[in-house]
């Protein structure tokens, strides 16, 4: 079997030679990585942290702060944890690809050059 990879969404990006230089890509995507399991609720709750945007149900779980001059990052998870990390340049850029089984389409939607990485043990919130 064989299927084309569409790069329609990347066109303007590739043509203009723009690429990610900070926490998110020019197309608005971000890659966040944590050394551990991130437990989040999977069911709706009547709580201010739960919202609906464009028919998607979301849970707000964290707050991220980046210090661009030093590439340091702080991540607050829930109400109790604080993680220290950094903006890391990827050794090899990563293409973000969606495999849409329903429509039989494969699309490269973005390219990540950086990720925000948290590999230290979470600290309590002081």
């Amino acid at each position: 079997p064989s299927i084309n990879v569409s790069k329609r969404q990347l066109q303007t990006l590739l043509q203009s030679d723009q690429h990610q230089t900070s926490v998110s890509t020019p197309l608005g995507n971000m890659m966040l990585e944590i050394q551990g399991d991130l437990e989040l609720p999977r069911q709706w709750s009547e709580d201010q942290r739960f919202t609906t945007i464009d028919k998607e149900q979301l849970v707000r779980w964290g707050l991220l702060h980046i210090d661009p001059s030093r590439n340091n990052a702080i991540l607050f998870v829930g109400r109790k944890q604080r993680l220290l990390g950094s903006l890391v340049k990827l050794d090899t850029p990563l293409g973000l690809i969606k495999f849409n089984q329903q429509d039989g389409i494969v699309e490269m939607q973005d390219i990540f050059y950086y990720k925000v990485l948290f590999k230290s043990r979470p600290l309590p919130i002081m």
């Binding site: 926490v23 966040l32 989040l40 609720p41 999977r42 069911q43 709706w44 919202t51 998607e56 149900q57 979301l58 849970v59 707000r60 779980w61 964290g62 707050l63 991220l64 702060h65 980046i66 991540l75 090899t92 850029p93 990563l94 293409g95 973000l96 690809i97 969606k98 495999f99 849409n100 089984q101 490269m108 990540f112």
Partner: peptide
């Protein structure tokens, strides 16, 4: 940045070197 996650995760995305 406020960070949220969708309650239903999309499993159709992959990362390619």
């Amino acid at each position: 940045l406020n960070l949220h996650e969708r309650l239903s995760i999309d499993r159709s995305f992959r990362l390619l070197h």
